[in-house]
């Protein structure tokens, strides 16, 4: 009985939550003229023309490839740098630890508009404008602190005695870290990877400012659908549906790590 009530609440929430996405899917399968002419609960004459346009026009599909590339670089950098730092914050006391920990997060607290001009000048100086690496680095500003914070939370959930026992057993730091510790917090690693991917994927302002053509993100390409004749809703909806897919794949791959979580006594 109790299980049923839970499933009902969850099902109801998902039903409401998926409505706007269903509406976007509905729009993406209709032509723009059809969308504007009539209200329809489902596409009466479904067409893939919007999707075909995206997959055949290089200015569209290259946007996806660019976004996937810089987002992946960013996620990797964030995880690799944040793992040891989060370990330090969760295990050690050192000079300025609390201050630095909180300072990291303050980098998420300024309006993005503040960073546009200085970042543009900075990356111009290094000749990095319109490269994937520039966007990947710029997004580190908000993703690295987030990664440290999330990972630190998960690491603090692991009793410090596990580390001590392993060191007594003769494990070196790097072997302990890679073979015992990371598997213990893989739920956290999975969540962190997903969050870094997600925040970098949806960010538009910085990504658009630092790129012109070669590394232009998909979200920027989508603003182009505003033309003299108004919005092409169908094309925009199809592009929107396609922006969900890469991230959905990421969470599909990390889902088991999130669901299994932390099990004591596996060491």
């Amino acid at each position: 009985m109790k299980i049923k009530k839970r499933a009902f609440i969850l099902g109801f929430y998902f039903f409401i939550m998926l409505l706007p996405i269903y509406w976007m899917l509905n729009m993406s399968l209709r032509t723009n003229a059809d969308i504007l002419n009539s209200f329809a609960l489902y596409p009466h004459n479904p067409t893939l023309s919007n999707y075909i346009k995206i997959f055949t026009d290089s200015s569209w599909y290259s946007g996806y490839l660019n976004s996937i590339l810089y987002v992946s670089i960013n996620t990797l950098i964030s995880l690799i740098t944040a793992l040891p730092a989060a370990y330090a914050f969760s295990r050690y006391r050192f000079l300025g630890d609390k201050q630095v920990f909180f300072w990291l997060l303050t980098n998420r607290m300024a309006p993005a508009a503040v960073f546009l001009l200085p970042f543009f000048q900075l990356y111009s100086t290094f000749g990095l404008i319109d490269t994937h690496i520039a966007v990947a680095f710029a997004h580190c500003l908000f993703n690295v602190p987030l990664a440290v914070w999330i990972l630190e939370g998960f690491m603090s959930g692991v009793p410090i005695e596990i580390d001590e026992t392993a060191f007594i057993d003769g494990y070196g730091f790097s072997r302990f870290f890679m073979t015992i510790f990371i598997p213990l917090i893989r739920a956290g690693v999975g969540v962190t990877a997903f969050f870094c991917f997600m925040f970098s994927w949806v960010e538009l302002l910085l990504a658009r400012t630092l790129t012109t053509t070669n590394a232009k993100p998909i979200a920027a390409t989508m603003t182009r659908t505003v033309s003299a004749t108004g919005l092409d809703w169908g094309l925009l909806a199809a592009a929107g549906i396609l922006t969900i897919i890469p991230g959905a794949l990421v969470i599909w791959f990390v889902r088991n790590h999130m669901a299994k979580g932390f099990a004591m006594g596996r060491v």
Partner: peptide, 22 residues
């Protein structure tokens, strides 16, 4: 988990557009 993540993965400018249509 996958369903839950869907709204988070949509670029922010597109979120506004979806809700205009919706």
């Amino acid at each position: 988990l996958v369903t839950l993540a869907l709204p988070l993965l949509i670029p922010w400018n597109v979120i506004g557009t979806i809700w205009i249509i919706f």
